[in-house]
Design a protein around this nucleic acid. Sequence first.
DNA 1: GTCTATAAATTGATAGAC
DNA 2: GTCTATCAATTTATAGAC
Lengths: 200, 200
Amino acid sequence: MKPAGTASPAPRRPPYDASSLLEVAVAVFNERGYDGTSMEDLARAAGITKSSFYHHVDGKQALLAAACDRALGALFAVRDEPASQRGRAVVRFEYVLLRTTQILLTESPYVTLLLRVRGNTPVEQTALERRREFDRYTADLLAQAMADGDLRADIDPALATRLTFGMVTSLTEWYRPSGETPPDAVAKATVDLILRGLRP
Amino acid sequence: MKPAGTASPAPRRPPYDASSLLEVAVAVFNERGYDGTSMEDLARAAGITKSSFYHHVDGKQALLAAACDRALGALFAVRDEPASQRGRAVVRFEYVLLRTTQILLTESPYVTLLLRVRGNTPVEQTALERRREFDRYTADLLAQAMADGDLRADIDPALATRLTFGMVTSLTEWYRPSGETPPDAVAKATVDLILRGLRP
DNA sequence: GTCTATAAATTGATAGAC
DNA sequence: GTCTATCAATTTATAGAC
């Protein structure tokens, strides 16, 4: 038995539960792309061999499915919040827009991976389908707000929805959580820009 | 990538010059992802065998490099236009924003591929570096327009630039050229939305 | 220019020892 | 739980016949 206080400085050996390995995997997927990442890459990033890695996870597609599930679960939870269901459409739209942006920032790695899914495999197709369902939900909200006269009606609603959430999802291209930039501040600035525009 | 959920684009017929094969390759890259596409996939989409395909092109990375070159060439050509070089910063910014959006739409497949580059290989790193140079160019323009008092100064210029071009680049996620939606109309609507916002 | 055949390396995944 | 060793399939790319 080792004397107390002489434990070797474990550099990167937390418990290898499925959850922490998923976190590692998602980070590598986002860096190199899902298809550009091998199981060898993932194992190396976790500090173990490929075989050991397989002992903890079910495979590459299972990792992708778990990550997409987490992102989609967080997004659909917004739809189920009370504030998303009562009140004027424009108010609900602005609320959902802000919450969606916040979730994209706080769950950044998972949502980033979800948004890059191409639909090559059944796992990806399922994720893509659920994502499109959320897109339809937000598009309907915006169209209703326009019909109410509470948002500019001189833009095609479908185009406006895509551009609006296109701006939001572009955050995944560069945003990294850090003390410098609190997610809520970035989310507020983003929603403000899409609502009021660049002109003074 | 083994499991192919859906069918590939219709096989393209001769002549098999490098340019038309590049067009085919870029289309498949955008559908399945660069890393998710094999040379076998490309050859099948072109309607010839893999070996025949290799007779016309130098390899997978060469195809990617050619596509990125085309996209980057079109983008940097905007910077060299007279209207991008003379006049008030805000006017130049709005001009470059519109032209960039137009090019993204007219050169959609090539720009789409460029924007998805992850930097895994030297070819991709070079493309990424040139793309970042263009990003700096537009960021400087917007910052100057803000400093001139011609654009809202209550937003961080770096954030505003990223969100602005994030909205524009999101067009690659869904826009497909067709008689229904002329590129110029979409580009104008996009620039108008980012400048004036969603509110009436 | 196209093909068949195949090389050489990588990949997702498993077997089985310790 | 981790490892070494390995498999079967795939992938980039080439050789060489016609």
